[in-house]
Structures are given as structure tokens and as C-alpha cells.
């Protein structure tokens, strides 16, 4: 399996992550801390999916906030308005989002670089405008409340239950993503990043695999978005806004593009950051912007690249 081994062997990392996730609850002394931890886990899920698209396959998306939010809205509306069981409405929501992503993939992924960034941004903004304006369904700018989440007759109310659910989701996702990356399919995705002609010349239908990874990343975003909507009991258009999409992209880049656990680290840091900055309330946006600029200038390969440097030395 040497061909598939990347700079880091990913297998132990999954175990370490599981261990950390098991230990964290001892640090979560109240519900508020739990809430932040759970949010970080859901963000990490979206970032891992987005990283498959951006970091590995090299296709930027400035719409993943919108996809996550829309997925959440669909699940929430199906449960709240049409009385579907939460599990079922999430499944339907993911199906709809997969179809939407598949339909968008061909025209959008023909574009590259700035054009791709702009097209995805346009899609994201249109989604958020729709969510803001369809008040009948979505509650408009004020958002809407979401029914509580129940599974096989059991209603999730305790924070630790949600933490467990989110952590399991993240671990399974990491395992699947790892398998994906270390496979012939993953090799195709990584080749797209460098040159589309190379894979095409050996028989790869490039458009098909771009669509596939796009659909996967959108479905993951929608799943995390739906679960988060049920967890927080409330969803607003901000969850699907432009800034949210940027935030997700920054998570991936901050952690390290094309590095599986980079996305997780980026998501955790960026989720904690606003909490750490609450005492600088007025300066929050300023500091956030400065961090993005600083990382892009001084650490363009992300935080994980620091570990590489340390490891090479050691």
C-alpha cells in the first residue's frame, strides 16, 4: 500500500481523534461549552467534505454555507410543516441536495479558478436570498424554529447525547473520507487538482468525477447542516449566508488544503475563535480578517504544515 501512503499515515490519526473526542466531555463543564463543542464537530464535518472538493480535487466552492443551510431548512420544513420523522426528513433533504448538486455540477465545474469561485458564490447568494424571502416556508429573515430530534422514539434532549451523535458522525465521516482518499478514486480526485489533461489521457472521465466529489461534499454539508438545525432548534438565513460560506472555506484553508485532519483542526479553531474574542466584541471582525490575512501570507499551506516542519526536524 505504499502507493497510497501520503506524507502521514492517516490510520493512527483516526484513533487519536477518537481518543480526544472521548476525553473532551470531561472539559465541558456546562451546556454552553457542549454547545460550542457540538458546533465545532458539525463544522468539522462540513469542512472535511469541502476539503475533498477544494483541497483534494482543487475545485473551490463559495456556496457550501448555502448548501449546509438549505439542507437544514429542507429537513426542518419537512419535519415542522409536513410532520415527517426527523430521520426521514434528513434522508429526503440529502436526496434533494444530491440532485441539486448533481444538476449544478456540470455547468459549474466546467469553470475554473475565479470563474468557478464566482459561479458558486452566485449560487450561494441566490439560495440565501430565496431563504430570506420565502417567509411562508422559511420564516424569512427571522428564521424558524425546528422540532426536536427523535430517533426510534427517543428524543435527543441532553447535550451529551448530541455530542455523542456528532462525534460518531465525524468519526465515521473521517474513516470514509480516509478510505476515499487512499483509493484509486481518491487518486483521480487528487490528479484533477494538478492537471485535468493527465487523467483524461489515461481514460478518466473528468467531468464525471468532478460531479461525484461535488455531490459528496454537498451531501456531507447538508447532513451536518440538518443535524445542526435539529440540535439548535432554530435555523436562520445566516446559516446559509455568504459569510458562512467564507467561514467554511477559511476553515479548510486555515487547517491545510488537501490535508484530511487539517480541515478538522481549522474547523475547531475557527469555531472557538469567536468565543475567545467575545471580550473584544467590537474588534471581532477586524481580528478575524487579520487572522485570515496573516495565515494566507505566512502560512499558506495551513496549520498542519507546521506539524510537517516539526516532524521533518525530529
Amino acid at each position: 500500500m505504499r502507493a497510497l501512503a501520503r506524507r502521514w499515515n492517516l490510520r493512527p490519526a483516526l484513533g487519536v481523534t477518537a481518543l480526544i473526542l472521548a476525553l473532551v466531555p470531561w472539559m465541558l463543564s456546562n451546556d454552553f461549552y457542549y454547545e460550542i463543542a457540538i458546533l465545532a464537530l458539525f463544522n468539522a464535518m462540513i469542512a472535511v467534505g469541502l476539503n475533498l472538493l477544494m483541497g483534494y480535487a482543487g475545485q473551490i466552492s463559495l456556496a457550501h454555507g448555502a448548501f449546509a443551510g438549505l439542507g437544514g431548512y429542507i429537513a426542518a420544513i419537512l419535519t415542522g410543516r409536513y410532520g415527517l420523522a426527523p430521520l426521514f426528513s434528513i434522508a429526503v433533504s440529502l436526496g434533494i441536495m444530491a440532485l441539486l448538486a448533481y444538476g449544478l455540477a456540470r455547468p459549474i465545474l466546467r469553470l475554473r479558478g475565479h470563474y468557478l469561485a464566482m459561479a458558486t458564490l452566485g449560487v450561494g447568494i441566490i439560495v440565501s436570498i430565496i431563504l430570506n424571502n420565502e417567509e411562508e416556508l422559511t420564516g424569512g429573515t427571522d428564521g424558524m424554529s425546528v422540532e426536536s430530534f427523535s430517533l426510534f422514539g427517543h428524543t435527543f434532549t441532553e447535550s451529551w447525547e448530541w455530542y455523542l451523535l456528532a462525534a460518531l458522525h465525524l468519526l465515521v465521516l473521517l474513516w470514509l473520507a480516509q478510505n476515499l482518499i487512499e483509493s484509486p478514486l481518491g487518486r483521480i480526485l487528487r490528479s484533477l487538482h494538478d492537471s485535468e489533461r493527465a487523467p483524461a489521457s489515461v481514460g478518466v472521465n473528468v467531468a464525471r468525477y468532478k460531479s461525484l466529489v461535488f455531490v459528496i461534499s454537498v451531501v456531507v454539508a447538508a447532513l451536518a447542516g440538518s443535524l445542526y438545525a435539529f440540535f439548535s432548534g432554530f435555523i436562520s438565513p445566516q446559516e446559509a449566508g455568504f459569510n458562512r460560506s467564507i467561514e467554511l472555506v477559511v476553515m479548510v484553508v486555515l487547517g491545510g488544503m488537501g490535508r484530511l485532519y487539517g480541515a478538522v483542526i481549522g474547523a475547531v479553531i475557527l469555531t472557538l475563535l469567536p468565543q475567545l474574542l467575545t471580550s473584544f466584541e467590537d474588534y471581532q471582525t477586524l481580528i478575524y480578517g487579520a487572522i485570515i490575512i496573516g495565515v494566507m501570507i505566512f502560512m499558506p499551506k495551513g496549520i498542519v504544515s507546521l506539524f510537517d516542519r516539526w516532524r521533518r526536524r525530529g
Binding site: A3, P184, R187, S191, P199
Partner: peptide, 17 residues
């Protein structure tokens, strides 16, 4: 048209796709 971010072996493996 070589994938620069992949190893030599991975590039050949791509050929077996």
C-alpha cells in the same frame, strides 16, 4: 501533463486507472 503533487508511482498508478 504530470500531476506534480503526486508521487511518480502514483502517476503511474493513475495510468492503470
Amino acid at each position: 501533463e504530470i500531476c506534480g503533487g503526486m508521487t511518480v508511482l502514483e502517476n503511474v498508478m493513475l495510468g492503470f486507472d
